[in-house]
Amino acid sequence: MKSRLPKGYGGNMNDMVKRAQEMQNEMQKAQEELEAMTFTTTVGGGAVEVVVTGKKELQSLTIKPEVVDPEDIEMLQDLIISAVNEGMRQVEERSDEDIQRITGGMSVPGLF
């Protein structure tokens, strides 16, 4: 026995599948573009600068000499953590923006 969809429903389903495939292709392209990007973040008035890739990898870390105080290593550690976390947040934010742009806010289970 063949299952049947209501009249006019088949074209709709085909359109939905086609659109899902298009969105998946757009997401793959957006992911590749994101991975090629870098995000630069500074904290502490420019005392610490990090560059994070779209792959969420720390690419570089620059520390101004005047912020290095052997008596206050904790402050330097906090600045580094803050800068790295902000860089990662920027990557995540860009990724979320791409998903929203491609899907129009629609949730597609199993697509992403």
Rank of each mutant, 00 (worst) to 15 (best):
V48A: 01
M37A: 13
E57R: 10
F39A: 05
E93C: 07
D98A: 15
E97C: 01
E97D: 14
D69Y: 07
P70F: 12
R89T: 11
R89D: 07
L111Y: 10
E66Y: 02
K55A: 15
G105M: 08
E66W: 05
I80E: 02
D78M: 06
G110V: 13
A83K: 04
R94I: 11
D98E: 15
A36E: 14
S95V: 09
I80A: 03
T53A: 09
Q90A: 13
S95K: 15
G45K: 08
E71W: 02
K56V: 03
M106G: 00
M106V: 15
T62Q: 14
T53C: 09
G105R: 07
V68S: 02
D78K: 02
E97L: 11
Q77N: 13
I73W: 11
V52K: 00
V91D: 00
S82V: 00
E49D: 02
F39I: 06
S82G: 13
E49R: 14
I81M: 14
L111M: 11
I73R: 14
V51H: 01
L61E: 01
T53F: 06
R101K: 14
G104T: 05
N85S: 08
P109D: 05
V43H: 01
D96V: 15
P109I: 11
L79V: 02
V50L: 12
V52R: 05
T103R: 09
F39K: 10
V48Q: 03
N85Q: 09
R94H: 14
I81L: 15
T42I: 04
L58R: 01
V68Y: 04
I99R: 10
L58P: 06
S82F: 02
V51N: 02
E66V: 02
